[in-house]
Design a binder for these strands. Structure first.
Lengths: 351, 351
DNA sequence: CTCCGGATTGCAATCGATTGCAATGGGCAA
DNA sequence: TTGCCCATTGCAATCGATTGCAATCCGGAG
């Protein structure tokens, strides 16, 4: 019944070698008190017979699960945010190198807390990554209570000094993008933002507002849209703005997906990006939505969400290995890259 | 050190109740030999004190890990296929209901086998889902040898009678779509397909070819493109075809993403879908790429990849619970839905 | 009142590792 | 040759559940 390859027990394997389980365990675990000769012998034999320690037993004995929990939150419409694939790919890469595994759950809108609790409660994971922080978020308190280390992707809104997080400078990015558009001479800049409940969207709007203020321009709430970041939503928002009484001359949008939707609305009306209207978008560098090339299609603020996944994973593992360190906080600046979607007013449209 | 909430041991918890660990375990496990009175008492106390069995110990004792492995394969360019998010969301939903957890790994092109082996070898998972079957795929043999149940999302190319899989009828879908375009009067239909190495792309091309044959039309290899299913690739393929000597009058494409790229090329050339050129695409019903509405933007063959994730998860759990059953094989028919992107030649463009 | 049998409950072994502490063995100094 | 010490190795307890089998309780039949 043991059947198959490499399913031996430590006991069986050590008997085979004429050693005790203790010594074999130590040899494989890299403990110093094992003689070089013995260690070699054990390592060779392990490879030969395909012995690999049973992970469940290891976990029980050591009290560490060597697993990190991720919870993928669905939004109100059960949408899966497309950035997850790339973020997870980045994180998983790091976990694989370091021998951790990734446990993924999904949480429907109401169930987020229960889902996280189920993960952490039974010590199924050594740490947790919090996705999609919202304004009122109970999760940090939950994990503090459970004594499970966590890193937030993004930032909560209140006091975050005691938490570990990795975020991009959303406010700075959108301030910079807005200032850029102002400098191009635009006076009516529309903001097509992500869902209002999300912290990053709030910060982006702050950046937009402060840059307008800086430029002495008024904020018109009719120019601000906040909704899911999909192509059709971007399209609809742009349609409403373009067909309104005073169409904007520039768009600042929160994702490539949304930008594509806005783009469609423009083309449909015979308008060309970079000639008739300007557009700047944020670009998460999703692998299936490349905005690449020497001169990218869209002018953008850019930050790789896959790189963020890698870094977040490293932070988590550092927190696990050194429990009593101060919180880790990374605030990443974005790249600003001029592409083909701007230059309308200044007439210096590239290409 | 036990600190926190709900981290009691079975022993501690049963002592508290004046019962033996055995009885408590049985009460919580739903065994019939426990009296109703006792069971109630135990259940109430468990809720009160927040007792939950330690999962690692449970796994070791039962020999089941209550986990399913998924491996997300990256393609040659390390691209994450965007369908994964929705597929995983569907699967995770089922796992959550049934108390399973999902373990996710990623595999770079060369490392797929090692990644899978690492998952199955140490019995970290009870079953595995195989994503992205390729022409020469060693994974089924590997898992048969390891005696780990698996379900393939898609189908291998050779003899698949002994495997469990869930696939859509790619050949039928693309034959139907091609026949539809032929019936509209098209004689030059381009195929913008997914990567040639993927089984589904092969089958789609077969469907396309057979429908052309049926209609008495020749297959022109210059009309067939196969590449990653991204917007820019779709754009480039369409550009090449449209700017070539004999542009096609219709496009059959493998994903909404690609369709959007082709669409962009068309608009750029002043052509309108459904008026000047027809297009049919496959639609995986990705949550962030909606092609919805009474009359969807694109005419499509449609099948929800999220539903596929759910069904695949159910199949896996059935295989775990009933090990010696014959292979499970689901071949799903797609929906064919007329949208705004066809009707050019017949002049009956909707809307 | 005694005995029997079904319904409950508990004992103790088991899952497969890790690890503190004791035991062994070999080399070198005296 | 005898001892001592340090480098190796092994014993046995432990992690926290599950589960086969034995033990107990109980009421009702005889």
């Amino acid at each position: 019944m043991k059947g198959g390859l490499g399913l031996v027990t430590l006991k069986e394997f050590s008997d085979l070698l004429g050693l005790s389980p203790t010594t074999v365990s130590r040899a494989l675990g890299g403990y110093p008190e094992v003689s070089a000769k013995t260690r070699d012998r054990v390592e060779v034999a392990a490879r030969t017979y395909g012995y690999r320690p049973n992970m469940q037993a290891q976990r029980l004995a050591t009290g560490r699960s060597m697993a990190i929990g991720h919870v993928l939150p669905l939004d109100r419409d059960e949408m899966v945010n497309p950035i997850f694939g790339d973020f997870l790919a980045g994180a998983a890469e790091v976990y694989a190198q370091r021998g951790y595994e990734m446990v993924l759950s999904i949480a429907k809108p109401g169930e987020a807390e229960a889902t996280y609790r189920a993960l952490a409660d039974r010590r199924r994971v050594d740490a947790v990554l919090l996705h999609g922080p919202e304004r009122e978020d109970l999760r940090p308190a939950l994990f503090d209570a459970l004594n499970v280390p966590f890193v937030v992707h993004g930032r909560m809104l209140g006091d975050t000094t005691a938490q570990s997080w990795l975020d991009i400078d959303n406010e700075g990015a959108f301030a910079q993008a807005t200032a850029f558009l102002c400098a191009q001479g635009h006076r009516r800049i529309a903001l097509i933002n992500g869902p209002a409940a999300q912290g990053f969207a709030y910060r982006r709007e702050q950046g937009y507002r402060s840059a307008l203020a800086q430029a002495g321009l008024p904020v018109e709430t009719s120019l601000i849209h906040a909704d899911q970041m999909t192509e059709p939503k971007g399209y609809l928002a742009a349609v409403r703005l373009l067909d309104g009484p005073q169409p904007p001359s520039a768009f600042l949008v929160s994702s490539i997906m949304t930008a594509m939707g806005a783009d469609r609305a423009l083309r449909e009306r015979g308008l060309t990006l970079g000639l008739d209207v300007d557009l700047v978008t944020h670009d998460d560098v999703l692998s299936f939505l490349p905005n690449s090339g020497e001169v990218p299609q869209y002018t953008c603020t850019r930050s790789s969400v896959r790189a963020a996944g890698q870094r977040a994973a490293e932070m988590l593992m550092s927190l696990i290995e050194t429990p009593d360190q101060p919180p880790l906080q990374d605030l990443w600046q974005v790249e600003f890259i001029e592409g083909l979607s701007t230059g309308a007013l200044s007439g210096r449209s590239p290409g």
